[in-house]
Computed example of a mutant assay.
Amino acid sequence: MASATVSPAVKKSGDEIPFNKHVAQHREPADWVADIVIWVLLALIVVVVIYPLWFVVIASFSNPAMVSTGKVTVLPVDINFGGYEKVFSDSRIWIGYKNTIIYSVVGTALNMIVTLPAAFALSRVDFKPRRVILFLFTFTMYFAGGLIPSYLLYKDLNLLDNMWVFILPGAVSVWNLIIARSFFETSIPEELHDAAQIDGLSFFGYFLKIVIPLSSAIIAVLGLYYFVGHWNDYFTGLIYIRTDTKQPLQMVLQNILLANQTQQGGAGNGGQSALQQQQLADQIKYGVIIVSTAPLLILYPFLQKYFNKGVMIGAVKG
């Protein structure tokens, strides 16, 4: 039996002619000029954003004398790791790393444990007081007690000079709570809850076994937001921590910078010695930037695919 072939449909009057993607569209010279201008502008923007970061990287292990004289532009010159040696020779750097890792990991875990259930509860239409509770959450975004009342409160709670001062006061970010709530409202179909009830799942079981596995994108985004916030937390250590062994990495790096600037200033009018001290201080400054940001730069590529998906939450409405 001969195989049947499907013949193209006969076009009727008024039918649209289908677009053939294989046929190149006719482009005017003005279109090519516009494309070139756009690509040139994008390339310039990329250079403006990337070059300062690249310069910090190459300046951190180039000869500081070459950096100060402007001979380091695109590639490192006379590779010198003196700045890194000075930074890592200070034992406080390892204590700061340990403290910051602890604060960031424990703090992020607590943030997720608190934020996700709260956001899911506020996303439920059958939860009647959700609008009032969300208003109270949002109110705290615009009005706060201030530094002195916060200090007195933390003192009464015995949080001063305590690692929990980095973790407990910021257990919930209202902005992240709103993002997670929007995700649960728009991305988790209500039919899943109905099916879970038929299968005998409790509300808590539905959240743990169905909602959480479907929320990898928002979990990655919020986790990255919270982790970066804890990692860069400088103000808390400055105000509420007095013991050196409890200081986060950002405070340790600041102390190293201040110590080298003091040494450079104490060199007085020593001529060449003072100049060398200043150049070394500048190299240490670049090294400190790399040391403080390298872990986040290493972590981000592994979360990028989830991050790109998560930041688009709510952008398209079906």
Rank of each mutant, 00 (worst) to 15 (best):
V40I: 13
I218S: 04
R124Y: 00
P18M: 08
V174N: 01
Q264S: 15
T138W: 01
I239G: 01
A119N: 04
I102T: 10
F307K: 09
A59F: 00
M251P: 06
T236L: 05
P213K: 07
Q272R: 14
S273M: 15
D244I: 04
V56D: 06
V211T: 05
V56H: 04
G107T: 11
F204M: 13
R242H: 15
A119P: 06
G268M: 03
G266W: 12
A195P: 01
P129L: 03
L75M: 13
I289F: 07
A144N: 15
L297Y: 06
V228A: 14
L222G: 07
N158Y: 12
I313F: 05
V106S: 05
D244G: 06
F203I: 09
K309Q: 09
I45Q: 02
F127H: 04
T115P: 03
T186R: 14
I198R: 01
D31P: 11
R131N: 14
I313D: 02
F88C: 07
A9K: 08
P8N: 13
L41P: 08
I188D: 01
G265A: 15
F61N: 04
N232T: 15
A118M: 15
S150V: 08
I101G: 02
V174D: 00
W39I: 10
W32M: 09
T108F: 00
K285M: 09
G265R: 14
P169F: 09
V125R: 09
F204V: 15
I38V: 12
M163F: 13
L297G: 10
K71H: 11
F143E: 06
V67A: 07
S89T: 11
L253D: 06
F19M: 10
I93M: 10
I50C: 04
I101N: 02
G268T: 08
M1Y: 07
Q250C: 04
L75N: 11
G205R: 11
G83K: 04
D156T: 14
I133C: 03
S202P: 11
L224F: 12
E185V: 11
F207L: 11
P18D: 10
M141F: 00
G146Q: 02
P29F: 10
V23S: 00
A118E: 05
Y142C: 03
K209V: 01
W54F: 10
A267Q: 14
L296P: 11
V37W: 15
V6Q: 05
P117S: 01
A59E: 01
L299I: 12
I79G: 01
A315H: 14
P301F: 03
I212T: 03
W175T: 13
N308I: 12
P52Q: 03
V77N: 08
L280E: 11
L177Q: 08
V211N: 06
V47A: 14
Q279F: 05
P301Q: 02
L224R: 06
N158C: 09
A119W: 02
D282V: 08
P248I: 09
G96K: 02
R131G: 09
I36K: 15
Q279R: 10
D126H: 01
F203N: 03
A315N: 10
T262L: 13
R124M: 04
